[in-house]
Design a protein around this nucleic acid. Structure first.
Length: 855
RNA sequence: GCGGGAGUGGUGAAAUGGCAGACACGCAGGUCUUAGAAGCCUGUGCCGUAAGGCGUAGGGGUUCAAGUCCCCUCUCCCGCACCA
């Protein structure tokens, strides 16, 4: 009957369908807007990391957003109030480089890129609430709140200025945070070695939160173990002790404070080792030309090794200073050396060397013939142990005065207390994490809202730093400016910007000309989304408290340290300012894998970049994003194969053909109920074919629904939809002959469309309309799986003999173990295997499988 | 060196201790076509004409049953690294 109505088949044409729907969606800004915080629905904050507006979307973006958009659409259909925002991480160096190259102002270049990328994102059909949430961090409406937070941190003693050794990228012509140095090179210029410079810089006191940042990781089950481990390593908490060693015969020289995690081994110390850049060494080289030469060489060598990533492998060497120090625990005199394996910026830059119980000290002592004194040994086997010996669980101290016989752990505690009581040491904790240096000598960033009062006033000496009042915010970035890469901050060359008055005394003042690290912008942007048009505050606390924490954050693992640690820090600061209640920004974090091509990360230099625009032009946005979900589970790397996209496109074309073919039948069914309103009994009078199709349908619903709840194996979800479509296609002749009730056909096609909606929104919208619906497919309820309909009528029972498959029995659904057992013995193939054997065990497992153990 | 992850057909992959390779890609044969493209149908882990045997990096173990759990080894990817 249906076949007769078949017209000339329309072909699936995404190039026509997709822009048509896109235009409709663009014209309706409220379509994906979240309801307010007073909504009665449960909330769901679905967030993807905001992109840098380079002007070109890449496949990594497409994959990231395809995952987030599928989830956002699914959650909406499940009845949640979904916040799904998007914005632009719009400050940063590329805009300045582009300005140099093309003579375009950074602002213009950035805003143009944003427009381009927004066009691309809309073309993909991503369901963002553009009108309600979109932010660009380079606009004063946004960055004024960076300045506001900065002032709050100055007030709280969390932002401060000091001179220190900093990482300097010559290409960026600016300072970098420790987090932005990757393998000794700049994170943006992987071939550019980072130099060390001494500069006055602004720092944020992230180390005040080091313990909370570290301990909090244990209570974050929704974050990948990998990310939590990386953050633990980065924070690098190390419990130990400081011990002061007096320098012999130099009463006015300060004692050398060493940091050690093994104070229990101090009786085995045979030398003191200083970093080449230790302050005492700097003093001593003044009167010792030979020492000066050796130290200078070591510093140069350390620098080279650090830059080439070889630090850790360079040969240990050192030089004796000729000076000695006193071990406060036993009064022994130890030689003081300078060694190239001691780092100036970790601990105190000085160690006590215990060759018997530390690999590095052992290597060093052997080379220079320093004594090796064992003071820890296994409890039972005395001192017969290979050195260096770390001291396992059953170890005890030997030759260690009052502490001899103690376990190392007990001794560490007692000896640190002893040192403290006698004033030459204390228990202490060292972190690898350093305070966050946020000053950048660049133009395209947030101006730091501080001035230097030229003449000074009460409490501020001439040239001293003064915070601007909140009322003077925003400090605007000047627009017309000459960008250069030399001669310090570009802002320093703009007199109208630099010259100002002191807000306290009214005298002349000079503005801070450094700008903030762009990671400041991204540390709190997701709070702004909850109230992005607020001009009185960064956001309304009530709104933020409704939406936070983020229910699902999705992005690349490359931000595991940088952005994800800074934004955790910022959240804690905001909590302590009383702005929010949550202590962590995101309940769940998902890090998707990379998109690779020919086995390597896509890059211009390798020439293996696949452009999303090309893919969309050839196969459509639906096929492109669906392939990104189908080709691999989302947490794994994805090898981009164009044939695969073509395959998805063919699949969508089959769905399209099938739906268009039967749509006329569906449309003529008046008042048909559908979706989850269908009563289970409705399809009771099915033909066998109809029942089989409904069974697969409901199995598919169940599978996809379950997967969205956490497993996120969208590749197998899409495979399940393919299986369903394959079955429907195979039943076409039955459908044509009227072997399947029209209501069933309608149910199948409507539900199939709903199941496709999170993955292929354009096609779903088109087919929903073709099926005669006037509502928006994304406002529909997600279909409910009916366990009755999903149940198999016949079960397949594999039968094994000694664990090897012999046959598969087909039995009526609901057969009990006894029936299964009997059927397995009655089978010919099985009995052939049993000739001359004795059955030892006859196992029927969970009504699913039979295993006969025979001898 | 430390930490995390991975290793399954020609390829992407699937399999929550229970039939290894679902679903795709590719390939081969067929069909339709004046021809091609697109469809559609069939086949496709390896060895073997077949019956059958073998098979999840390698080795061992636990179990009625192991890709999956445990131990050892190898390889690859990612992060950190002379961190005292």
């Amino acid at each position: 009957m249906v076949g007769a109505e078949r017209n000339e088949q329309q072909r699936y044409n995404p190039a026509e369908i997709e822009p048509r729907w896109q235009a409709l969606w663009d014209a309706n800004p409220a379509l994906y807007a979240a309801e307010s915080h007073t909504s009665g629905k449960p909330k769901f904050y679905c967030l993807e990391m905001l992109p840098y507006p380079s002007g070109q979307l890449h496949m990594g973006h497409v994959r990231n957003y395809a995952i987030g958009d599928a989830l956002a659409r699914f959650m909406r259909m499940r009845g949640y109030n979904v916040l799904h925002p998007m914005g632009w991480d719009a400050f940063g160096l590329p805009a300045e480089n582009a300005a140099l190259k093309n003579n375009t102002p950074p602002r213009e270049w950035t805003l143009k890129n944003i427009e381009q990328m927004k066009v691309q994102m809309r073309r993909i059909g991503l369901s963002y609430d553009w009108a309600g949430t979109e932010i660009a961090t380079c606009l004063p409406e946004y960055y004024r709140w960076n300045q506001w937070f900065f002032l709050k941190m100055v007030e709280a003693g969390l932002a401060y200025r000091r001179s220190s050794k900093v990482n300097w990228c010559p290409k960026c012509a600016t300072v970098l945070a420790n987090e932005q140095v990757v393998g000794g090179c700049c994170w943006r210029h992987e071939d550019t070695l980072v130099e060390q410079r001494e500069l006055e810089q602004w720092f944020l006191g992230i180390t005040k939160y080091a313990d909370e940042l570290l301990d909090g990781l244990d209570a974050m089950p929704g974050w990948p173990e990998k990310v939590r481990t990386m953050q633990r390593n980065w924070i690098g908490r190390s419990e130990g002790a400081h011990v002061d060693f007096r320098v012999s015969a130099m009463a006015d020289t300060p004692a050398i404070t060493v940091f050690t995690t093994r104070v229990d081994t101090i009786f085995g110390a045979t030398s003191i080792q200083l970093a080449p850049e230790h302050p005492l060494v700097k003093e001593w080289v003044k009167n010792d030309a030979e020492l000066a030469k050796a130290v200078t060489e070591m510093i140069a060598q350390q620098k080279v090794a650090r830059e080439t990533g070889d630090i850790g492998n360079i040969e240990k060497h050192g030089v004796a200073t000729g000076k000695t120090a006193i071990n406060p625990f036993n009064g022994e005199t130890l030689p003081i050396w300078v060694a190239n394996y001691i780092l100036a910026d970790y601990g105190t830059g000085a160690i006590m060397s215990v060759p018997a119980h530390d690999d590095r000290d052992f290597e060093f002592a052997n080379k220079y013939g320093l004594p090796v004194v064992q003071v820890v040994a296994p409890r039972d086997s005395a001192e017969d142990v290979a050195l260096p010996y770390g001291g396992e669980d059953d170890a005890v101290l030997m030759d260690s005065g009052a502490w001899t016989g103690e376990t190392p752990v007990a001794a560490q505690e007692k000896m640190a207390r002893f040192a403290e009581e006698h004033g030459f040491g204390k228990k202490t904790t060292t972190y690898r994490l350093k305070d966050w240096g946020v000053s950048r000598q660049r133009y395209w960033g947030t101006p730091i809202p501080m001035v230097y009062c030229a003449n000074g006033h009460a409490g501020v000496k001439p040239g001293g730093v003064v915070a601007l009042p909140e009322s003077s915010l925003p400090v605007l970035l000047p627009e017309q400016i000459e960008i250069t890469q030399e001669g310090g901050s570009p802002l320093g060359k703009v007199p109208e910007f630099v010259n100002t008055t002191c807000p306290v005394c009214g005298g002349p003042a000079r503005r801070e000309t450094d700008t903030m690290d762009t990671f400041v912008d991204s540390s709190w942007y997701f709070y702004r989304y909850t109230d992005s048009r607020n001009s009185h505050a960064p956001f309304d606390s009530e709104k933020a408290n409704y939406w936070f924490p983020i229910d699902q954050y999705i992005g690349g693992v490359e931000h595991a340290i940088l952005h994800l640690i800074y934004s955790r820090f910022w959240t804690k600061v905001m909590r302590d300012l009383g702005l929010i209640k949550n202590s962590e920004p995101a309940e769940r974090l998902f890090t998707q894998g990379m998109v690779i091509k020919d086995g390597a990360k896509m890059s211009k230099s390798k020439g293996n970049v696949v452009s999303p625009d090309d893919m969309i032009a050839r196969y459509g946005a639906d096929a492109t994003r669906m392939y990104a979900l189908f080709a691999a589970p989302p947490d794994r790397d994805l090898e981009w194969q164009e044939e695969g996209v073509a395959g998805i496109s063919r699949f969508l074309a089959r769905v399209y053909r099938l739906t268009i073919k039967y749509a006329p039948v569906v449309r003529t069914l008046e008042g048909a109920v559908h979706g989850d309103e269908v009563a289970a009994g409705q399809f009771a009078g099915q033909t066998i074919e109809g029942a089989a199709l409904l069974r697969t349908l409901h199995q598919t619903i169940a599978k996809i629904t379950e997967d969205f709840n956490g497993r996120w194996h969208f590749n197998t979800c899409i495979a399940a939809i393919m299986i369903l479509v394959n079955e429907v296609t195979a039943a076409e002749s039955a459908m044509d002959k009227g072997g399947i009730a029209p209501a069933t056909v309608a149910e199948l096609l409507r539900t199939l469309t709903l199941l496709l909606a999170p993955f292929a929104p354009f096609l779903a919208a088109e087919l929903w309309r073709e099926l005669g619906e006037t509502t928006d497919v994304f406002q529909q309820h997600w279909p409910a799986a009916d366990a009755q309909l999903a149940r198999e009528s016949e079960i397949e029972i594999p039968v094994q003999v000694n664990g090897k498959l012999v046959t598969v029995l087909k039995l009526a659904s609901g057969s009990d173990d006894e029936a299964i057992s009997a059927a397995s013995l009655a089978d010919e193939k099985v009995s052939a295997r049993l000739v001359g054997k004795t059955i030892v065990k006859h196992l029927v497992i969970k009504s699913k499988l039979v295993n006969l153990v025979v001898k």
